[in-house]
């Protein structure tokens, strides 16, 4: 991943088991893209890829947070609801009291991070399964949405809408939205944290073996609370990006997004049991999910629900691969 190691890494990279799952996903992505290009008119364009980023910037950010959590061997079911709650808070504060975006956005991010931190704290200190705690978080955030309001709230703050509608022109008529830059920045920061900081390495260690991490003197509790905080923050940021995309706040936004995020992470080659995976894989996972949708819409005769079936099939294949991969490892103890 680092530029310094790139030249000599290429040969070893292809055989290093760390990169194999990501390469598989990359191969899948390429195959789908080429197949789509050969089959459909107008598919083979750069904008198709850029659209994947434009339409999924929020999902990408949420999936980054989910990757952190899954790398520790946990799970966060609350992300979709926190995204919705963030759009709701942002929209209501800008529409009602007319707060400016530069106050609202940081506040939303703080709320998301705090929610995540509290869930992480409960998971660690009271030793309750992440599944249940984040399920409660999911109910809580969704419930809070509805207490703010049951209808969609339109966002018409001029600064906010202007930013949301900005097109950043690249070459040859290609363009992206600012959200894409934000999402890519989040990916970059996330990758840096995972690879170059002690927190990031602790995340992998905890996912590999919590017991060992503890005995090696790592602060397991701090790491676990940190990843849920990061996930909460990413969900809130994802919510802000979704507000840019939708220009509204709504309690029914992002229903089921936790499943998309989990699917992207798993298809990106991250082990659901934790300890192995790369953020670049998650990016590819999101792209693959988008490509499935695009292909199905290009196909015309296939209806949208095939997306879910294909995602399910992909999940099955990748989970099966993970299972085979983990069985091939040398046994740890007699």
């Amino acid at each position: 991943m680092s530029i310094a190691t790139l030249p000599k890494a290429t040969a070893a990279t292809l055989t290093n088991p760390r990169y194999v799952p990501v390469l598989v996903t990359f191969g899948l992505f390429l195959a789908m893209f080429v197949a789509g290009g050969l089959r459909y008119e107008g598919f083979f364009s750069g904008q198709i890829i850029l659209n994947a980023f434009i339409d999924n910037a929020f999902l990408l950010v949420v999936a980054v947070g989910m990757t952190f959590v899954i790398l520790t061997g946990g799970i966060d079911l609350s992300v979709g609801s926190v995204v919705a709650l963030s759009t709701m808070i942002a929209a209501s504060l800008m529409a009602g009291p007319g707060w400016p975006p530069y106050v609202v956005v940081p506040l939303v991010l703080l709320i998301g991070a705090t929610l995540g931190a509290v869930m992480g704290f409960i998971i660690h200190v009271f030793e309750i399964q992440p599944f249940i705690v984040t399920l409660a978080g999911m109910f809580l955030a969704r419930g809070l949405c509805y207490t703010i309001g049951t209808d969609s709230i339109k966002i018409d703050d001029p600064t906010f809408t202007a930013f949301a509608q900005t097109q950043i022109d690249l070459f040859a008529g290609l363009w992206i939205s600012p959200s894409v830059l934000i999402a890519l920045a989040v990916v970059a920061v996330g990758a840096y944290v995972l690879h170059y900081t002690r927190l990031g390495r602790s995340v992998y260690a905890v996912g590999g073996s919590e017991q060992s991490a503890l005995l090696m003197g790592l602060s397991v509790g701090r790491t676990k609370i940190a990843v849920y905080t990061i996930s909460g923050f990413c969900s809130a940021l994802g919510g802000v990006l979704l507000s840019f995309y939708m220009l509204s706040g709504y309690g029914l936004h992002a229903v089921g997004m936790e499943l998309d995020a989990i699917a992207a992470v798993v298809i990106g080659g991250t082990l659901l049991t934790g300890g192995s995976g790369l953020l670049i894989g998650t990016v590819l996972g999101v792209l693959v999910l988008h490509l499935i949708q695009t292909i199905i819409s290009f196909e015309g005769t296939l209806s949208s629900w095939w997306t879910k079936i294909f995602i399910g099939l992909l999940l099955f294949v990748f989970i099966l691969l993970q299972r085979v991969f983990s069985m091939r490892r040398p046994r740890r103890s007699p």
Binding site: S303, S304, W305, K308
Partner: peptide, 9 residues
């Protein structure tokens, strides 16, 4: 995940 798709199918 896949079951929702199946139901819609």
């Amino acid at each position: 995940v896949a079951g929702r798709g199946l139901a819609q199918l």
